[in-house]
Computed example of a mutant assay.
Amino acid sequence: MTTPATQSPTSPTARLMDGSALARRMVEEAAERAALLTRRTGRTPCLATVLVGDDPASVTYVRMKRSRCEQAGIRSRHVALPAATTTAELVDTLTALSDDPEVHGILLQHPVGPHIDERAAFEAIAPAKDVDGVTYHSFATMSFGADGFASCTPAGILRLLDHYGVELAGKHAVVVGRSAILGKPVGMLLLGRDATVTYCHSRTTDLAALTRQADVLVAAVGRPRFLTGDHIKPGAVVIDAGYNPGNVGDVDFDSARTRASLITPVPGGVGPMTIATLLTQTVDAAERLS
């Protein structure tokens, strides 16, 4: 673990939180564990990726995840479904993968299209193979600190905060965003570390008055450069979990870095941690199922 450099609240430039470097280390560790499991049991961890349609961004994300699997010695199985796939057909596919003993983790790339009941699809994934942490079961076990799989991006954020020695107990964490796979779960993980958590969203009144109270600010609102330096308490830790067209996050980086003490860049901050956490949890699942 590294310790953040001491900075005054008015430091002109925040220290960058390098998610890429930490993610590489995590992938190396996952590869070592995968190789050990293969030697011991003869079985290689396998992640099944399911993609509905041919959305360019989703295709790119899945290709990237499969490439990282190869680097970590994890076998990948890709299931490509046509855009016209129905909810029932997608549920059948995910149920079959859940029942397949050769598959240890399942990733349903989202979004899946407005005609599909995404929640019904997620719930077709067996909890033991929900390495992306998207089911009700995973959210509940994560929230209660029980043995399960956390949502990958929130878990990656916590790992990054730990790596940079950010103390969470007693701190005020403000989460801007309330999605089921990012905003809500990251707040629960922060609460589990004894932070005081405030959730904000699109209907929050006087947002800046709340974000300026944050010792740790998590931006997960899905709007490019939505939060600026004026939203940030001097010396705060800023986690930008957004990714928008043009390679920009939900935080206006240039103005935010003049106020924050630590900040994640986009790209190279939270994104690599998400994929590394997915691979780590796939190996976890394989070890439990072996």
Rank of each mutant, 00 (worst) to 15 (best):
R40T: 14
V59G: 03
M64V: 07
G53A: 00
V50H: 01
C46R: 12
T41E: 01
K65R: 14
V50S: 06
L37P: 00
G53V: 02
T41Y: 03
R66Q: 15
R40A: 13
M64Q: 13
T49A: 12
L36W: 14
S67W: 10
P56M: 07
A48Y: 00
A34G: 12
D55Q: 13
Y61S: 05
P45Q: 01
A48K: 03
G53R: 01
L37V: 04
G53M: 03
T60G: 11
R63V: 02
R63H: 14
R40K: 14
V59D: 00
K65V: 13
S67M: 10
V50C: 02
R66V: 12
Y61M: 11
R43I: 03
Y61N: 05
A34R: 08
R39A: 15
R33E: 15
T41R: 05
G53L: 04
V62H: 14
G53W: 07
L51R: 07
D55I: 07
T49Y: 05
R66S: 13
V52R: 10
A57N: 07
M64T: 15
D54M: 04
L47F: 08
A48P: 04
V50T: 00
G53K: 04
G42T: 07
R63A: 14
A35S: 11
L47W: 03
L47E: 01
V50I: 02
D54G: 03
L37Y: 05
G53C: 05
C46F: 08
T41N: 00
A35Y: 07
R63W: 04
R40N: 05
K65P: 02
G53F: 08
R66W: 12
D54T: 12
V59C: 14
